[in-house]
């Protein structure tokens, strides 16, 4: 087995684990977004390593998928950041709290009517 591939599979696993841990324990939405992106990075790394990146040019199909994935990740992050800004305007905090979300959204809907 190619030792380079082993190194990058282990790295991918570590990033994914760290990202998931961060997602579960972090208190701020912005940091949770960072950790979701970390998890994505781990999966991308795994895809390319398994596509043969350690030995030579990796298979073009996973490469194209990861390229698509990188753009999708930035789109999703941008949308999430816009949601975060709106949420902070409504609630005055950058944390997640289920009841507060419901209250703030209800208030906002009431205002619109």
């Amino acid at each position: 087995m190619n030792p380079t591939a082993v190194i990058y599979v282990l790295t991918a696993a570590a990033i994914f684990g760290i990202g998931l841990y961060g997602l579960l324990v972090s208190r701020q939405i912005l940091r949770q977004l960072l950790t979701i992106n970390l998890m994505g990075g781990g999966i991308f790394l795994l895809l390319i390593t398994l596509g043969g990146g350690a030995e030579g040019p990796p298979d073009p199909v996973p490469q194209a998928m990861v390229l698509t994935g990188i753009v999708i990740a930035v789109s999703a992050t941008a949308f999430a950041l816009a949601l975060l800004l709106r949420w902070q305007e409504l609630s005055g905090s950058s944390e997640v709290d289920g009841d507060a979300v419901t209250d703030a959204v209800t208030d906002a809907l009431d205002d619109d009517e």
């Binding site: 208190r27 902070q88 905090s93 709290d97």
Partner: peptide, 16 residues
């Protein structure tokens, strides 16, 4: 932009 709206309160609840 978040800073403009108010200081960041970092003591929210964790998911677990």
């Amino acid at each position: 932009r978040l800073q403009v709206h108010g200081p960041d309160d970092s003591n929210g609840p964790r998911l677990m």
